[in-house]
Amino acid sequence: MALTTVDAGWRRGADFLVRGIGGISILCGWIAASMILASVFITCQMIFVRFVLRQSTIWQTETVIYLMIAATMLGLPYVQKLRGHVNVDLLPLWLRPVPRKLLAVVVLLSGIVVLGIMGFYAFEHWYLAFQRGWRSSSVWGPPLWIPYLAMPLGFALFILQLLADLLALLIGRDTAFGLEAD
């Protein structure tokens, strides 16, 4: 069956959107990896300053913690793009292609809803920190809205990747759970 011009244009646009969101997820993966690398270098610098130079450290421990949390949150869409999250595929393996696709749609929509709720509360927490000028109680005392921003941003990008996965499944660009049709 030949596709009409409208159908072909819609699918091309949807495919472009899926690839664009995938590119954003890959960028997030690179940013997360860079944050982990920066954390390693900062930890090495902290060890050098403490044990070789015998000086105190002020900002290093807190920075490493914030970078690792941000790397975890910003790495979520990249891991989703690679299908790296933990899953149990016993049920999808048992199902025929149509129920498997339906299950995949339900799982993706459920994930979007749950992450939407988590993202809402993460945004609310970030906004409170920003609005009230919360600062860390450490000697360094950075404003907390900066590290807290990673939570709503990470959840939003994760939801975006889930939407791209759902769209790719619906237009036939991807298969349910990455399994081949029988």
Rank of each mutant, 00 (worst) to 15 (best):
M46A: 15
R54G: 12
V6I: 14
C28W: 06
I159P: 07
R50F: 11
T72F: 13
V6S: 14
G75F: 03
A33M: 02
R96G: 15
T72P: 02
L162S: 08
I58E: 14
L74Y: 10
A156T: 08
W140C: 00
W94I: 07
A14L: 06
T57R: 03
V98Y: 12
F130I: 04
A168P: 08
L27Q: 01
E62N: 10
M1F: 11
Q60D: 07
A14M: 10
L90C: 05
L27T: 09
L128R: 15
R54W: 13
L160R: 09
A71I: 01
R11M: 12
A164C: 03
G133V: 00
P147I: 05
F120Y: 15
I146M: 04
G172F: 00
I36S: 07
Q131M: 12
M73Q: 04
Y148M: 05
G178C: 03
I21D: 10
L95S: 09
S110N: 13
V98Q: 15
L74Q: 08
L160H: 11
M68R: 03
D7K: 14
Y127H: 12
I47A: 13
G22D: 05
L103C: 00
Q161D: 10
L37V: 14
G84C: 07
V105W: 06
W126M: 05
V86Y: 10
E124T: 07
W30S: 06
R135Y: 09
A71L: 03
W134A: 00
T61A: 14
A168G: 12
Q60W: 06
I117Y: 14
A14E: 04
L91A: 15
V105I: 13
R173T: 06
R173S: 10
L108V: 01
L167F: 02
S110F: 12
L170P: 01
L76S: 08
G22Y: 02
G172W: 00
N87A: 13
A71S: 13
I58L: 15
L108E: 12
P147C: 06
M118F: 15
R135A: 08
Q60T: 02
D182Q: 11
G154Q: 00
L90N: 11
F123L: 11
L153V: 09
L179M: 12
A176T: 09
A156K: 02
R100L: 02
D15E: 13
I26L: 04
F158N: 07
L53C: 08
W140K: 00
F177Y: 12
L103T: 00
V79C: 04
M68V: 11
Y66Q: 09
A71H: 02
Q161K: 05
A33V: 01
